[in-house]
């Protein structure tokens, strides 16, 4: 059955393994892949006026960098292999943004790598992967 599969990339090997697993699934089911990169960003920080002024340009360059170095090359590889692949780059909190994309893009399942977080980070902020699994309305495959 043809599905929309979202793959969360983070530029690490973990993300690539998640992509590998998702690709296998897509080849079998002839599904469409959405390669996604979320740039960690919070609307609740405190900036100087100068930072605010430069924010728009910085955002553009962040998106460009993520697209050119991470998402686009992978998507091209997949398309060359005859798969359907689209790319999404967004700013936001990772788990929350992925959940929002699920309904926006009509996603059927999510593949995500076990993001390399230290124990301390997890203790303080909670794990991104765990948060996603909790909040997601579609099946989530966590690839170690």
């Amino acid at each position: 059955m043809k599905e929309n599969i979202l793959v969360a990339l983070d530029g690490s090997e973990c993300g690539e393994r998640a992509l590998g697993a998702a690709t296998k699934n897509a080849q079998i089911t002839d599904s469409r892949l959405f390669l996604t990169y979320v740039i960690d960003w919070s609307p609740y920080t405190f900036n100087t006026p100068e930072e605010n002024e430069q924010r728009h340009q910085r955002r553009e360059s962040e998106i460009q960098k993520a697209s050119e170095t991470i998402v686009n090359p992978k998507a091209q590889e997949l398309r060359d292999a005859g798969l359907e692949a689209e790319t999404v780059v967004r700013h936001g909190k990772i788990a929350e943004t992925l959940v929002n994309l699920t309904s926006e893009l009509d996603i059927d399942q999510i593949y995500i790598g076990k993001i390399g977080e230290s124990r301390l980070q997890t203790m303080i902020f909670g794990s991104v992967t765990a948060a996603l699994v909790q909040a997601s309305s579609v099946p989530v495959t966590v690839v170690p």
Binding site: P43, Y44, T45, F46, N47, N52, R55, H56
Partner: peptide, 22 residues
């Protein structure tokens, strides 16, 4: 009222916080 597609721009909160700290 923040469109997720425009996330990453200066948020209303940030604009307010900057002005208030001035």
């Amino acid at each position: 009222y923040a469109d997720p597609k425009s996330h990453g721009e200066v948020s209303h909160f940030q604009a307010l916080a900057t002005a208030v700290s001035g």
